[in-house]
Simulated scan of single mutants.
Amino acid sequence: MAIAKAERLMNLALCLMNTTRPLSKRELRASIEAYREMEGGSEEAFNRMFERDKDDLRELGLIIETAESLDDEVGYLARRDRNRLPEVALDAEEAAALGLAARVWQQARLAEAASGALHKLRAAGVPFETEGAGSLGALEPHIPVHEAAFEPLMLAARDRRPVTFDYRKATAARPEQRHVEPWALECWRGHWYLAGWDRDRKAGRVFRLSRITGRVRTGSGKFTADVPDHVDVRETVARWGGEGATATARIRLRRGAGYPLRAKALDLRPVDAEWDELEIPYGRGLDARLVEFGPDVVVLAPAELRADVVDRLRAVAQGPTSEPAKG
């Protein structure tokens, strides 16, 4: 049905754009096969379908004018000069930035669409640099999308549809079912996060996709909570990860491991050939981040952080052995 409607709308748009005079509904019905062969065939049914199609085309951006046709009926046409996009003109830096943005999605659902858009712009004469050339050619941006939950959550957030999934917190031995109204997806430091309204907890929450187990199930019905005008996933996750924290923690970190922790270190000194000692910002959620480094991190202080990390490690050790892949 969706393909049939798309074909019908395309044929109607072509008729309206390729005529030099207004066409009446009677002429359009005779020219478009889908209208001629429509089920029922009544004039009333055709009028309803035509009005819906006309509204859909206008919503898609087609400018349809009305005027008197040759047989003194209301006629319709879409003038080409009013429905032509301005010429795309990008300088070298803008084209390079667009090329980098397109290559970001090479592992995701949008890869084919991004590649097709670049081919069309290149054919129109936009000066894209060849891969590996120019000042930006050495940059290879990647947003990895390994989690199976990414695509259904992206579509649900786009269509404003609630979802249900099993989610395992870092401190929990087993996953719990969550009912969420998805707002936005964002990648931060190599991991994908979902922000949304948790219906059970009646509050906004952020979920890490790599902790979603099983299949994401999309439901029906409308959202029960208002979607914020601005959803800053990174700010929330960064706050949980200790960004901007005023307290500090002391840890030992194995040599050659934990680059993100080293990058944030306020102080670093070698202990021996295997370990370094670091002082790092301490805020909410730092225990969850430290657990990710496993045996490469030992918490020295404060005591409550050490206890939280030990609790999380015990919970992981007691949980199922089939840990979902990290993104």
Score class of each variant (00 low, 15 high):
residue 73 E to F: 05
residue 51 E to M: 11
residue 17 M to T: 12
residue 254 R to Y: 04
residue 250 R to P: 00
residue 250 R to H: 07
residue 315 A to K: 03
residue 46 F to P: 02
residue 134 G to A: 03
residue 10 M to H: 14
residue 171 T to N: 13
residue 185 L to R: 05
residue 70 L to Q: 14
residue 100 L to K: 05
residue 219 G to C: 05
residue 226 D to T: 14
residue 140 E to C: 10
residue 321 T to P: 00
residue 84 R to M: 15
residue 112 E to P: 00
residue 41 G to Q: 04
residue 45 A to E: 10
residue 288 A to Y: 07
residue 151 E to G: 04
residue 177 Q to T: 13
residue 90 L to I: 02
residue 3 I to C: 03
residue 198 D to P: 00
residue 34 A to F: 02
residue 24 S to Y: 01
residue 153 L to V: 05
residue 21 R to Y: 10
residue 139 L to E: 06
residue 54 K to R: 15
residue 303 A to D: 15
residue 121 L to D: 07
residue 21 R to V: 11
residue 58 R to I: 06
residue 292 E to T: 13
residue 60 L to N: 02
residue 8 R to C: 09
residue 84 R to W: 13
residue 162 P to T: 13
residue 161 R to K: 14
residue 284 R to M: 11
residue 116 G to Q: 07
residue 235 E to K: 11
residue 228 P to A: 09
residue 308 D to I: 10
residue 316 V to F: 07
residue 243 E to N: 10
residue 72 D to R: 14
residue 279 E to I: 07
residue 166 D to K: 05
residue 303 A to M: 09
residue 140 E to D: 15
residue 256 G to Q: 03
residue 53 D to G: 01
residue 48 R to D: 11
residue 240 W to V: 04
residue 122 R to A: 14
residue 75 G to E: 01
residue 200 D to C: 01
residue 287 D to P: 00
residue 21 R to W: 05
residue 57 L to F: 03
residue 242 G to S: 06
residue 308 D to Q: 15
residue 174 R to C: 01
residue 147 E to Y: 02
residue 24 S to L: 03
residue 162 P to K: 07
residue 259 Y to S: 14
residue 94 E to H: 11
residue 216 V to A: 04
residue 287 D to T: 01
residue 150 F to A: 05
residue 207 F to C: 04
residue 7 E to C: 05
residue 11 N to Q: 15
residue 125 G to I: 08
residue 54 K to I: 07
residue 147 E to H: 12
residue 133 A to C: 06
residue 5 K to W: 11
residue 117 A to T: 13
residue 185 L to K: 08
residue 311 D to H: 11
residue 52 R to S: 05
residue 248 T to Q: 11
residue 247 A to F: 00
residue 102 A to I: 01
residue 258 G to C: 06
residue 269 R to T: 08
residue 180 V to L: 01
residue 267 D to G: 07
residue 182 P to Y: 09
residue 12 L to Q: 06
residue 199 R to E: 14
residue 200 D to M: 09
residue 151 E to W: 08
residue 297 V to A: 09
residue 169 K to S: 15
residue 269 R to K: 11
residue 159 D to W: 05
residue 305 L to A: 02
residue 149 A to V: 12
residue 58 R to W: 01
residue 326 K to R: 15
residue 116 G to H: 02
residue 93 E to M: 14
residue 115 S to Q: 12
residue 166 D to I: 01
residue 300 L to M: 10
residue 293 F to H: 11
residue 96 A to V: 03
residue 80 R to E: 13
residue 150 F to V: 03
residue 161 R to P: 00
residue 110 L to H: 10
residue 98 L to N: 08
residue 289 R to G: 10
residue 186 E to F: 02
residue 36 R to E: 13
residue 148 A to S: 11
residue 100 L to V: 06
residue 20 T to I: 03
residue 305 L to C: 00
residue 128 F to W: 06
residue 64 I to T: 10
residue 298 V to C: 08
residue 317 A to E: 10
residue 264 K to H: 10
residue 6 A to S: 15
residue 228 P to W: 09
residue 165 F to R: 04
residue 144 P to Q: 02
residue 37 E to Q: 15
residue 115 S to V: 09
residue 3 I to F: 00
residue 265 A to K: 01
residue 110 L to I: 13
residue 244 G to C: 02
residue 229 D to M: 04
residue 35 Y to W: 03
residue 266 L to P: 00
residue 95 A to H: 02
residue 68 E to K: 13
residue 282 Y to K: 08
residue 319 G to A: 06
residue 177 Q to D: 05
residue 94 E to L: 08
residue 193 Y to K: 07
